[in-house]
Nucleic acid binder design. Structure first.
Lengths: 205, 205, 205, 205
DNA sequence: CATGAATGAGTATTCATTCAT
DNA sequence: TATGAATGAATACTCATTCAT
């Protein structure tokens, strides 16, 4: 009922978003609370009205980033398409989006490192990765049902592999810009499809 | 000329190795030069005898790590096997090794982030990644010649995809320990082979 | 806008003054920023709120000292006296003052050395010395008009010589306390006056 | 009898001279023992064979500088000239010399500051200044005897004033290069002579 | 005698956090 | 509620000095 609560939350998200951009660009330790405040157009003390400390700020920033990415995914997911086509569309849409949020992605990586070292809220990330795998898994399952994918596919691990490939590709692309992300994705998709679609027989030695 | 006999290079590598472990465990900014010195059993000033500054220390540590990893790869590479088998062996050997250098791998990720933000020596990393892709590409090419892999495979991109998957898998594994790396690798391998081996025909919609 | 009312400029001058005393007593390099803070009764970080770095602190201290000295001179300058008498009064008043700011004077010397080596703001000092010479030159000129000084005196260089003597005298006095500054000044004044006042004829060989 | 003693002393003087140049150029605190060693073409440890510590090094450097200056003075002193002319020659010769040892002079000033703050060997400096005043005083006394200077001159204080002027002039010249030292000296000399030479009567108010 | 590798005390500077207004 | 002045803990880096060779 109190309209201020809305304001407070909006302001919170605003600050977190600004912080996320800075963290992505310069890294957690190089970003000062003061620079976040300046970038958000508020006083340094005010940041502490919304976040208990710098750590909380990074958690908030990460949540905001994840929300954006998940929203993008959900929005892009087109259930009128056949499952494998929906996955293809999703894949390339993400590639497109990444060309625009590359810096944020750096922040994403860094956050994972922080978690690994005991800082941050691991739950957020685990949950998000699980959700990501499940979305892909769900599509693959539907594709099995639709006969687009071979029935004996280990869906959970295929989804995990897909996701791993995706993040690894971005990761390498950040290091060497060649080949560009779209080319890499195209080649992968081709090869991914070859691996999962029905076939007469496998002839491995 | 020098009255004190010290193998300056050996000492340098020693310090870099110690630093690498700490950087991997706690991250660059959380590691103090003093802690590196203590861990190496030397005085703080001595670190500065071998490295101009903390940045140089991280470059040195990275070089050391890369050298180790490349050496491990080369050592593991068994050219008496058929190419695809050699690649499989390499893959699982790396997975094994990673269970032991997981922390170092965190350092590896972090270094990439630093490079992306303008610090560090980008050349080392680019070179290493290129070398990694080439090694895999070489094996795939040999596999094509041996008829183990379909002839129309885009080798360069398949190698890049393989490498991307590999790093992405480690990356996700660092975040959620489930499934374990070996399971993930087994599923990927199966599915990778399906994608690259010869087949009657592709039946994609 | 600012909820905390602090006269930033007053605080700045206060810190500079305190720093000036310490610099004078112990020299720039022997004085730590922390000791300045302690002496000013503030925290170390606060010093950096007012001065960008230690160098800025010394510039500020010097400005403060110069302002004090110049104010003292101007206050002492009595224009109701005949010009030469005004200069005499000024001279001895400065001597008196110096017995109290001797330590500061050490800082003054040191600052000049720093300037000579490329640090500090040379403009401040040059301006101050020029002003000092002009004040003396003005008095000598008035004395010429009043017939107290011989008309053919090279005023600019006499003023420069006077100033040089003054600083040199302080300088030697700092080294050997004998003779005391007043005696030295008395002798100089007598002899200075002999050199500049009108005379029948010069009988130099 | 031992020829090594000569060597040792020569080496000592050599190091001190080199140190003096560096101290003059950069200031005591900015000069490292290592840089002195490098400049002297020896090892860092060797410096400590000849000087107990950095402080001793500065004392040695100062002694060397003083010896040079005194030697220059004594060499220049021409007793075949009439006393006042000898003093004039000495003055201008020193001015000439200073154009070449300006940097060393900075060291001289700094040393005085150090003494004033309790470091260094005050005796050396006091002795040297006394000697300097006595040399000038002696010439003035001889000039009185020769009738070149008025008999009622307070010789001790005139000598002290002369010396003070000299150092003050150099000091100002270091700050503002204008007027050049020779011009300043010419004006001073003219005016000094006016003040000390015999005259009919003083007509001061 | 000469050396320079090793050392750690000492210091400038940054920045997260607090709190009076 | 918003602010930014004040603070001091934390840290990279320097350099005089020692001492094994």
């Amino acid at each position: 009922m109190s309209p201020k609560i809305v304001d407070k939350n909006a302001r919170r998200l605003e600050i977190a978003a600004v912080a996320g951009v800075l963290f992505g660009k310069y890294g957690f330790d190089k970003v000062t609370v003061d620079s976040v405040a300046k970038a958000a157009g508020i006083g340094k003390g005010t940041v502490y009205e919304y976040f208990q400390n710098k750590e909380a700020l990074i958690d908030g920033a990460f949540e905001t980033l994840m929300t954006h990415m998940m929203t993008h995914m959900t929005d892009t997911l087109d259930l009128t398409l056949r499952p494998l086509d929906a996955l293809r569309k999703l894949t390339f849409s993400m590639v497109d989006a990444l060309n625009h949020v590359g810096e944020q992605y750096g922040f994403f990586l860094e956050y994972i490192l922080m978690l690994n070292r005991g800082g941050g809220n691991a739950g957020i990330l685990t949950g998000m990765l699980t959700e990501y795998r499940q979305m892909v898994g769900g599509l693959l399952e539907a594709a099995v049902d639709a006969g687009q994918v071979r029935a004996n596919l280990d869906i959970a691990n295929a989804a995990a592999s897909y996701a791993a490939w995706f993040d690894g590709a971005i990761f390498h692309w950040m290091t060497i810009q060649s080949p560009d992300l779209k080319t890499l994705a195209t080649a992968f998709w081709d090869f991914f499809v070859s691996g999962i679609t029905p076939r007469e027989e496998a002839q491995i030695a």
